[in-house]
């Protein structure tokens, strides 16, 4: 019976160990890794991380050329996700790259727009439509709020507004805990 017990316990430990090894096992191929990292990023494509978009930043993280705390739009949740994928500790957002903001979208003051088309090429997700000498506008659902179109506009008619009206953004708050 002692042996049975011991064998049972050994099996149990093996099971636990196998479970953990399954948890930590992950593909090592670099492009798989880049994909997994890229999937953690918010895809705002704003280049605030000092890379020309989310995927280049993901490549830099994969090759160890960048830290995981350089993406302001992603904020803490992205850092946590990256830390988990990479098995590194969670760190705070590096504010040199910017601070985390609530989601926003670009808005073109259509009366002021002169139709110069300068804002179209910088938009990483093709969210601006318009044609030469005609009014331009932003497709709000497609815009990621990356701010890249603000700078090129010669008449400063693009501004950023909160992504959705307050009530759609509202969430059920976290209840108080026993000792908080």
């Amino acid at each position: 019976m002692l042996w049975l017990t011991l064998i049972g316990l050994a099996l149990l430990c093996t099971g636990i160990g196998y479970g953990f090894s399954r948890l930590s096992a992950s593909g090592n191929q670099s492009d798989v890794l880049v994909e997994r990292i890229n999937d953690c990023l918010p895809q705002t494509q704003c280049a605030q991380c000092n890379f020309p978009g989310c995927r280049p930043y993901a490549e830099a993280i994969a090759t160890g050329q960048a830290n995981i705390n350089q993406c302001p739009p992603g904020g803490d949740s992205t850092i946590e996700a990256l830390a988990e994928v990479l098995g590194v500790p969670v760190v705070a957002l590096n504010v040199d790259y910017g601070t985390h903001k609530e989601p926003q979208v670009a808005f073109i003051d259509e009366a002021a727009c002169i139709g110069c088309t300068l804002c179209i090429p910088p938009c990483p997700v093709d969210a601006i439509i318009g044609s030469t000498k005609l009014m331009h506008t932003v497709i709000a659902e497609d815009c990621t709020g990356c701010e890249l179109c603000i700078e090129p506009c010669p008449v400063d008619c693009i501004s950023l507004v909160p992504a959705k009206p307050e009530v759609s953004q509202w969430r059920y708050p976290k209840p108080a805990r026993a000792h908080d």
Binding site: Q45, R55, P124, V125, P173
Partner: peptide, 26 residues
Amino acid sequence: HGKDELKHQRAAEQNAVMAKARSEKH
């Protein structure tokens, strides 16, 4: 609270997937 967070998280993930696709096309 958890359900609401999950809903927003899923929406954000969905948006990210779409933004990624558009950005790749771009």
